[in-house]
Nucleic acid binder design. Structure first.
Lengths: 202, 202, 202, 202
DNA sequence: CATGAATGAGTCTTCATTCAT
DNA sequence: TATGAATGAAGACTCATTCAT
């Protein structure tokens, strides 16, 4: 039975991975369920044994990948000492996770936005949980007197991730990359940190 | 004849505006051409006198609105004195233009991203032109010695607008607004400016 | 007023001629009324001042051209002396009229057949009148003892024209013409005449 | 599995047969795919599992029926002794195949012509193969000294079939049949044979 | 669990025809 | 008469989903 479970999970995984590939290439609305099935090497009908419908595939895909991202990010952040270092590590890890998996990058950059529409109801708690890894660091910094008290973590966490994402989006979509993504990330997190930290001389 | 011209333009406008409303509410792929027609109070077929197909409506919509945004933004920025003020004004103007027109906000936040897919080829020159209003200001600041020389305008322009947009997106999508958008914008542009300007004491 | 009449007829003619050109090129169902209008250099709506609908254009076109064909054919046949010569002249004239006007050839070869469908009711009296020019000649030949009495004019008139038309159709449609059409016509009418005439030696 | 195979073929057959019926009644362009589906007792979409599009149905229909015609005709002709008898048998068999299946008669008489348009590229090899059954007989007759040497098989094969078809067309379309079709066929093939055979007395 | 043939609701788009000017 | 912008009915085709095997 454990074998069966394993094979079942396997199949669900395979479908999710196939969906990621297909969604990334064609976009959610231009992807066909049958294409995902072919990519996953299962029959069309099989998909409906594991997912309620096409939307459900996308949502599952998000949850699956976001959980992985959160877990990995949490681990990386915990390694760091100070809050500022944490922000820096967040930026690097975020970008490396996203750029290392091109398909996931496409999906999160494009489909996540779009699907905000059909996922209206679906409160993206995982995304918030992910973002909160930033606000925790900021709050910690404020408590330790390293980060300005007049900074609102709930605002800056979004600004930070938005800045990183816009950069990644450009990097993902553009064919001729002008800037090395790692240089860009360093620069952006540097500006942010510079902008939020308490002035030493004062 | 001027009346006719007027009414013709009127009709195209009306369709664009109707499309904006419908796309904003349902998203591009969930919008029906017939819905746009009804909203614009024209027959379904009339739309195809002015647009090649559904995609063309979306593209026209972008171009039309982006041109308006660029023109207005340019005017506002030129009013300012220093580069830093320009960045601040950019932020405020950007957000006010976007939030004042909820439908446009939805479209630019969601559909623009999504359509990056089908507009792959369609190099979004207007968007770049818009972003360059930021990099001009940054370059100016660097020349005047107000902004750090090690800042790359092409990177920071994206980071800046990405930060603003992520904030707006949250604001647009969330039903219960925790933060006043103007406060958020002030804070974000403040962090950016703080992060890129030359330290006075040094 | 005569001028106006003239110009009116002119316009109707122009439309008919344009329709012939367009139908010939694209076929009836793949022709657009607007295309005919453009070709005739009139507005779309103008066509409906002269014709009830698209079908009516085709019917008018037939009647107009068939009348011309009948009149000309009658004149040519009357020039001849004997019935057998008349059949020969019919063949030559038929083919030359058709092949001289490629568009008309296309229309009569293809659209006439097709439209048998939608012209079900429309008894093609003109076509019969045209065919009867053959049966008259055959009857005349039978009366004069030149053509076999066991030949049924109503059958052979169709066989004759069918043979000629199939040949023309091939000639019209094929790009590389194997046979000179005039040679083919001579051979076909020769076989027919040989087949229907009374054996001299008996 | 043989059952499945059978039922699959069955379904494609059923659609072809339904299409023949509908095309015959309404003509290709006035037939609705949904009508064919209803007639075949399948869902609209099912048709597209077996055919690329509406045109493809027509082409498949032709190929399917022409192959049957060729096979049957070949068999019938091979039974005969002399070339002249073969021509006679061709005529009878041609007409009986066509008139026995009214729908097919309509389709081949009307749609085949019309579609010459959209099948421009589609070289009708099967039709040529069918016609060549005539020219083989003619050539054979020439070799045996029964048929005049100055006859061109490539021309007369078309003349012959054209004569037969025009007769059938009339017979198919006319409501009150003046002539028994078999009588007409006998007369036509008699005229042709008389016209092409070598004069005995000479 | 797995399949994939079958379904049929749903939509973009075309184009003959109309009618206000 | 002439125009051509506007109409809207109509239809080919797609594809998510089901269900008998």
């Amino acid at each position: 039975m454990s074998i069966k479970e394993g094979s079942t999970d396997d199949k669900k995984q395979r479908i999710v991975r196939a969906a990621m590939k297909v969604f990334a290439k064609k976009g959610f609305y231009n992807s066909r369920v049958s294409e995902i099935a072919r990519e996953a090497d299962v029959a069309d009908g099989t998909i409906y044994l594991y997912f309620k419908n096409k939307d459900d595939i996308l949502i599952s895909l998000f949850e699956y990948e976001m959980k992985k991202m959160i877990a990995y990010m949490r681990k990386e952040i915990e390694k760091c000492d100070g809050p500022l270092e944490r922000l820096q590590v967040f930026a690097y890890t975020h970008i490396s996770m996203i750029t290392e998996n091109h398909d996931w990058a496409e999906v999160i950059q494009v489909e996540l936005r779009q699907s905000a529409k059909f996922m209206r109801e679906y409160v993206n708690e995982l995304y918030i949980e992910y973002l909160n890894l930033i606000s925790f660091a900021i709050k910690e910094g404020q408590e330790k007197g390293i980060i300005r008290k007049d900074i609102t973590p709930g605002i800056i966490k979004r600004a930070f991730v938005g800045a990183l994402d816009e950069m990644t989006r450009y990097w993902v979509l553009s064919t001729r990359k002008k800037h090395r993504i790692s240089d860009a990330i360093r620069e952006i997190s540097d500006v942010f940190i510079e902008g939020i930290k308490v002035e030493k001389e004062k």
